[in-house]
Amino acid sequence: MPGLTLHLLALSTEVSIFLQTLRQTRDVVVASRPRHVVVRPEHLDATTLSQTPWDLLVLLRPLTNGDDDDDDATAIPKSLQPSITSEYKVTVGIPSKLLTTYAARDNQLKASASTAPLTGSLDSARARSSSQSLEVSPDLLDFMDSLTAQHNGPVTMLNLLHFHPDGKKSYFQYGQAFVPVAGKRGGDAKLVGNVVPPAGGGGGDSRGSADRPAEDWWNEVSIVHYPSIRHFCDMLAGEDYQAINEKYRLAALRDTFLLCTTEFDVEKTAAAAKL
């Protein structure tokens, strides 16, 4: 199971320039612009994850050749470190089969996004005060309207998951039930992997989180595609989704971080289409 690194970065330089340079020495599997925190963590690095103004999310696969001997192949190259003002790093093992087929599946999902159906759930959504339990809230609806005005294409959701001691089984059941519920709206999990705890404990913030036991750390990462933010909200507003959310997901999780992002290749394609 190949080890990849997920990085959230706050930068002091232009994102496009940073990313272009990064691609010269690293295999960038996913590159996204963080847009909105949908669910804030309550226990694990809550302040760092929720309040840092992140500029870039990247999932990196170490290159097997061409790396500078002075660089850690699982880290951001040393030449780019001065441009980073804050970093949060998670190491994740993703099955080889998912990585082998990722590019083709990713292209197919993005190509079919414009024809993905909505179910109409939003028309009768019961707004809640918060989306912390993955319900449609006024704040989330405001974000949906704002993002749709700028970007009406695919969104990529980053999920960091920390399970209750007996929660893994319940979340597996949630994952199985999620497939048809999200699928009828064009949603699909693109990558799922187990988190590798930091050696000797410790936090994900490479700039100095406090140490913690390895078991008090994220357990799983998933990266999920939706044809648009409206499709995501349509799902949350659906009775079919809330049934599995309440039955399986909420019971499984001790903590979670859910971040809405837009991938740079999708943004570039949308911008070119307007010309």
Rank of each mutant, 00 (worst) to 15 (best):
T100F: 02
L147Y: 02
D234P: 07
D139A: 11
V30E: 08
E239Y: 09
T101E: 07
G201F: 05
S228Y: 01
G202H: 01
F172D: 04
C260Q: 13
T74E: 07
T85N: 13
R254L: 00
E87R: 15
A104N: 15
Q173T: 00
H36T: 03
V196D: 13
H151N: 04
E263F: 06
S96P: 11
E267Y: 12
L57G: 04
L49P: 09
S146N: 11
T13M: 06
G208W: 02
F264A: 10
T91D: 12
P165H: 06
S32L: 00
Y241T: 08
S129P: 06
A46R: 14
C260G: 12
R128F: 08
L9Y: 06
D139Y: 12
T156N: 14
P2I: 02
P41N: 07
Q51Y: 10
Q150F: 05
S83N: 14
A199Q: 07
L253M: 09
N107I: 00
L236V: 13
Y88K: 12
H164E: 03
T74H: 14
S129R: 15
F178L: 09
S112V: 05
V15R: 15
T261K: 10
S112Y: 01
G203L: 01
T156W: 11
S32C: 11
E135G: 04
L19T: 03
P197M: 03
L80R: 06
A251K: 12
S222V: 06
N159W: 08
P2T: 01
P82G: 03
L109G: 00
D265T: 14
V266C: 15
I17Y: 08
D106W: 13
V224L: 13
L160Q: 13
G153E: 06
I76T: 02
P227L: 01
K169I: 04
R126Y: 11
L4Q: 14
D69L: 13
I229P: 06
S209I: 04
D166H: 12
A125C: 12
R254A: 02
G201V: 02
S83T: 08
T5E: 14
L118S: 01
G204H: 02
T47Y: 14
F178H: 06
I17F: 07
L22T: 01
L253K: 14
A75C: 06
V28Q: 05
P165L: 04
F163P: 09
S131E: 05
V179G: 02
A270N: 14
L6F: 13
K168N: 04
C260F: 05
A272Y: 11
L160H: 10
S228C: 00
R185E: 00
L250N: 11
L44W: 14
S137W: 04
E263N: 15
D68H: 14
A243N: 12
S170I: 00
D72N: 11
L191P: 10
V37T: 09
Q176S: 02
F257I: 04
Y226N: 11
S96F: 10
Q51I: 03
S137V: 03
L98P: 04
K168S: 10
H231V: 00
N65I: 00
L158C: 05
S133N: 15
S50D: 09
D240Y: 10
L63G: 10
